[in-house]
Design a protein around this nucleic acid. Structure first.
Lengths: 356, 356
DNA sequence: CTGAAAGCGCTTACAG
DNA sequence: CTGAAAGCGCTTACAG
């Protein structure tokens, strides 16, 4: 079928160089070409022959066909990444980091929307059943235990990114707790004592760890946290807005608030602005995670920058370890990126007013 | 090599069902299984045999191996998408739309960062030379003519998304001009006469079309546009901030401004806020493109919502037309999505003050 | 109505 | 030191 008929049907596709073309150009068989180009250590070859092969490959700009190679090696050289909401800059940064690390190992990243992946199962079929990926990076906060059990039973390597639930599978995360403590320390250093927290949904382990970090920071400063000072923001911007609205009703009102995510902080900012509460004069705010937009909010937002890119790179390394079989140890690994979080001070924090 | 040694090296990978397994289960040869499952119209088969085959495939949860299929058919069932800056919600929406449309045609999307793609050429090698994609969606604003010439000479199908430069290749875009006119009409309707424009870099065709739309809208309202009222914002947020700063120095100052992108509008907002200029009381602002964040800015931003998702879906359709050879007509197509843009009115616009 | 065979482009024992 | 051959999992003329 792949005859002239095909050539006529589409635009003439420029002839693609195959291994055989290189072999012919170098005047050798395809076997040694393959072994030389793949740096097979067991090959012993006359230097001049090797030279001829390498040159021919270079001149023809040869690259092995990924699908042929994948079929033969049962290795696709692609990693699937399950991640929600590309629109959040945080996720964009994770993707970027994963892409870099994958590229360095000559892997390619196939993106799958978390919701679609877990709900419709469409992507599941296309990525897993059609065997398009060698492994999965799962950066979805929502727990999908049955799906993961499925992966385990299939023996498909995977790593949970930005999660920490070791009994479920290997995890790579950042030190959320430390990041939150940093935020609290910053506010305490400015003189705040009535500090509130807008946290995420309880079923997200990141949210739980951040809340724990908040409490730890407050405890270290010997500050009380009234129950009403912890508000839950289930849906990012909108949740942040609603949680903030509740905090602003309180008496005494907190003089500072640390928000569990950037999106929620944007919502919280909107709630304060809408009510004419001046930030930072009347209320200081610290957001979690950094992105360019933080500098352009009103006011520019003080945030905690976490080593997200490094986390993503690390995840790829761990996954590749499983894929290549170099890491066959207990699956229950749990890596926390050691790079410390950094507080980026902008205009949303200042000492509390004397009157407070 | 793919013997027991391999099985031992990795976690035991649950046996994957192959075509041969289905054939065996149905008690037939692999040929008819393939033809039945692919709905080959030339097949004539006893209903009960077909039934057996279909059932077996279903029970075994069979899905053809994408790489084997791709190798045989010289069709990867994947589309490469070259797009810059995932972090911008606009791009995220385009990706989402493309993913949906691709999935509907059982294609998968492989993302490539535009900068990396055009500069290092790394992704170029991996996607094109390794033949991982059947075609390319190029949503990068930066002109990369030599690269595109390369695609043409290779006969690799591609579509420019959100661009309109017909001589270069097939394009799918939205009616930017109309969108801008909508913004102007809205402001004119509120009573504004001194309306300024913050535009994008001149080498981006989207920016040029939006500027033209702005001018057309002003002309239609018989309003003059002083040269100083058109400011260029080359770098999104930062550019928007700087351009706004320049506009605010002007005398007489514009009473309204329409900004060419959402990111630039965020920067422009920051510039106004930083100078204590109250929006919309002292200055009305309309942004271009909509995203959830627009509702949480200070103030919530009036924007023009463009049919981006539809544009993305359309791009996929056009590309698939080329790939499948159904569309072999002149390559110089130029599609503009007809769905009209919509003005989303929020709190950043109001009638100009009497004094102005 | 159905099956055996060739071949997509690779890699890798194996034989010389 | 190098090549011929088998086989990865599919699809598709072709033969029966």
């Amino acid at each position: 079928m792949a005859g002239p008929a095909d050539g006529r049907r589409r635009k003439a596709r420029a002839a693609v160089v195959r291994l055989a073309d290189v072999a012919e150009a170098a005047g050798v068989g395809t076997s040694i070409v393959s072994r030389v180009l793949n740096a097979d250590p067991t090959v012993s070859i006359r230097p001049e022959t090797r030279e001829r092969i390498v040159r021919a490959a270079q001149e023809l700009n040869y690259r092995p066909n990924a699908f042929a190679r994948g079929l033969k090696l049962a290795r696709t050289m692609t990693i699937g990444m399950v991640i929600p909401n590309l629109a959040y800059p945080v996720n964009a940064e994770i993707i970027r980091g994963a892409e870099r690390a994958a590229a360095a190992a000559s892997y390619v990243i196939l993106l799958a929307d978390a919701d679609e992946f877990l709900q419709t199962g469409e992507a599941y079929q296309r990525l897993l059943l059609e065997q398009r990926v060698d492994g999965l990076l799962i950066a979805s906060a929502s727990t999908a235990e049955p799906f993961i059990a499925d992966l385990v039973s299939q023996g498909l390597p995977f790593v949970l990114v930005n999660r920490r639930v070791p009994h479920v599978g290997p995890c790579v995360s950042v030190d959320d707790g430390r990041g939150m403590q940093l935020a609290v320390e910053h506010l305490v250093g400015l003189g705040h004592r009535r500090i509130a927290h807008i946290g995420g949904p309880r079923d997200a382990d990141t949210a739980r760890r951040r809340l724990a970090g908040f409490r730890a920071g407050m405890r270290a400063a010997r500050l009380r946290v009234p129950a009403t000072y912890v508000a839950e923001a289930p849906y990012e911007e909108e949740g942040g807005e609603q949680a903030m609205a509740r905090l602003l009703e309180l008496d005494p009102r907190p003089t500072a608030v640390v928000v569990w995510s950037l999106a929620a902080a944007i919502g919280a900012l909107a709630a304060a602005n809408a009510r004419g509460i001046r930030i930072p004069e009347e209320l200081s705010m610290v957001g979690f995670h950094d992105a360019p937009i933080a500098a352009y909010l009103h006011p520019p937002l003080t945030t905690v920058r976490m080593p997200l890119r490094e986390m993503a790179e690390r995840s790829v390394d761990v996954l590749l370890g499983f894929i290549h079989g170099t890491d066959n140890g207990p699956r229950a690994r749990n890596i926390v990126v050691a790079t410390p979080p950094v507080l980026i001070e902008r205009a949303s924090t200042q000492p509390p007013r004397r009157t407070a």
